[in-house]
Design a protein around this nucleic acid. Sequence first.
DNA 1: CGGCACATTGAGGTATGTCAATCTTAGTGG
DNA 2: CCACTAAGATTGACATACCTCAATGTGCCG
Lengths: 230, 230
Amino acid sequence: MKTLQPAAGVVARHLATLPAFRGLNASDRERIAAEAFLRMYTRGEALFHVGDPATALLGLVRGSARVLRTRPDGQEKVVHLLTAPVLVAEVPTLTGEALPATAVCGEDCMVVAIPRTVLVDAVRKDPEFALRILAVVFDRLQQLTRALARHGQRNAAARVGAWILARDAPSGVLPAAKKDVADYLGLQPETFSRALAVLRTEGGVEVEGDAFRILDRSALERFLNTHESS
Amino acid sequence: MKTLQPAAGVVARHLATLPAFRGLNASDRERIAAEAFLRMYTRGEALFHVGDPATALLGLVRGSARVLRTRPDGQEKVVHLLTAPVLVAEVPTLTGEALPATAVCGEDCMVVAIPRTVLVDAVRKDPEFALRILAVVFDRLQQLTRALARHGQRNAAARVGAWILARDAPSGVLPAAKKDVADYLGLQPETFSRALAVLRTEGGVEVEGDAFRILDRSALERFLNTHESS
DNA sequence: CGGCACATTGAGGTATGTCAATCTTAGTGG
DNA sequence: CCACTAAGATTGACATACCTCAATGTGCCG
């Protein structure tokens, strides 16, 4: 990890890319940016570990990361896949709780770190800002309940297909190594691999390395509909 | 659904049982209570439906309910099991989003409904209150990520055992019909039933009807440890 | 260029889903 | 208050999708 001292305004520009900060007026943003830090992380480095005090809200402005939860038996499960721009650890930072999970960079990342005190002040001064943060959290809750509803549901191929469709982009790059995406979807790497093979032949999806492309969206939707139930 | 006109102070007393409102000082609580409603629902009745506008925060003060998410194919999945006292729909109420799920009473319920405007005012006037709400939301996020991490993990019996252990009570009553608990845990009713049978013989757990009791906590923990992996 | 982690493909076992029949419980109405 | 009815719970038999183990292929980073 390396902390940068960027020119004034640079941090503010990065802030502006983040949800919840986009809606802020420019002067408030600059005020916050003045007290924030810019940090660089390298692939594989941890943004934070379970149990760490939440000293700052992190805005992931470049790169991607995975959030891991450690189970009693020591195994780790991917519970989130993060792609910039996105907020991380906003809730524990506000409530003062310890961080409940570990986050690891999937590639080199740039992060805007906003110290807890600065964030809490911002919420106190501007309740609307608190509501914007809540909107972000709401989104996260939605995603989680969706993921939960999806889990154990459908066969592996349909689950993967639904996830690709939910990415809402005709083409793109997997936000993590396949084994981590597999873990996130609750599958073994082998099953994930086979599921992709099925989607290639029947689902109108092209996958090469970590790049994917939806060749035939309607074919994919049809495939999902014909594999609705478990 | 039936709306009551209780004596002054009654609503305030119910409010005081709810997380996030407990910490409020008495006068603020009374002010909010004066503008809140008390509602009674009967078993099987819906507290709200997906897509409804979130007009009020609901404080479930008596009874229990299940929160359902409808999948594209029309099937429903239990994503939360609620037991009083607990807040429902606080986030969409604050952010003004539509309700993302449906909630159905598992038994007769009593609910304190706090109109959106009253809640938003309270948050605006008292940032500390906003943070307390965030703490509640944080808890929910935690539960969801835990549930997600648990899902697809371990065999059925271990998953059920872990859930019972997480209830954190030596004995109690299932918060919903077995089929709904099963659904919540991502299992078929039959599998759930068999899992309970295993826990009875090997896990030191007694189950009769909807009542359960942990006869031998260490036996249960040992059982879970020996069935760690999937 | 070499080593290692990841990805893919194959084969086989098993836990869980599915279908079906019986038993129990709770809610309804006489 | 009791009998009736329907929904839920349980148990068994069977099918299958996924996990596991293993071997090979591929790409990336040092």
